[in-house]
């Protein structure tokens, strides 16, 4: 029985690791466009895991790793809007709908990722559409999705209402290599 259990553990462990793909340097970019001003920020440190056995995934970004054109914007973003000290990370975890590991044909496949998007301490169930491409070694992912500030309890004071879009567009690009 001991042998049985340890074999089982080993088998499941090696099985899991062989099927996982990971990144530590995913690109996240967001853009707020209003008549008054455009605000954008870049983050090149998104980390993520994809389990190719079933399409399960988890992604996370450090809010502090978003960089803005102006230092004051970055300070306000962290201090007043996303409250990075209280909520240091945003995460998205779930699974890719109708996952098919046989998509390793070098073509781009439109997929929908369903999961829980946790940002500013507020969790939202989201279906996020994107593309998935096998690059011969791992997976390239690409998506663009909107985030409504109100949905995540991010308050914009009246004086800057015209400067910050109520819905922010977020672009994500990442390459996940075998772990």
């Amino acid at each position: 029985m001991k042998i049985f259990l340890s074999t089982m553990l080993l088998a499941s462990a090696s099985f899991a690791s062989a099927q996982q793909f990971m990144t530590r340097s995913g690109q996240v970019h967001f853009f707020s466009e209003t008549a008054m001003e455009n605000i954008e920020a870049e983050n090149a440190q998104m980390s993520g895991l994809l389990d190719a056995s079933n399409g399960g995934f988890a992604f996370q970004v450090q809010m502090r790793a978003f960089h803005f054109e102006k230092a004051l914007m970055e300070e306000h973003f962290n201090e007043n809007y996303v409250e990075s000290e209280k909520y240091p990370k945003a995460t998205f975890q779930g699974s890719i709908q109708d996952w098919d590991d046989a998509w390793k044909d070098g073509e781009s496949h439109d997929v929908v990722a369903t999961g829980s998007f946790d940002f500013h301490g507020v969790k939202k169930e989201r279906d996020i559409a994107g593309t998935l491409t096998w690059n011969g070694k791992g997976w390239d992912i690409e998506t663009r999705f909107p985030v409504a500030l109100e949905d995540h309890k991010i308050e914009v004071p009246a004086v800057v209402k015209d400067n910050i879009a109520p819905v922010i567009d977020v672009d994500v690009n990442a390459t996940l290599d075998p772990r």
Binding site: L49, G56, A58, F59, Q60, Q93, S95
Partner: peptide
């Protein structure tokens, strides 16, 4: 899987 993956990622 998802929670497990997030923990593994962390």
């Amino acid at each position: 899987s998802a929670q497990g993956l997030l923990d593994a990622l962390n």
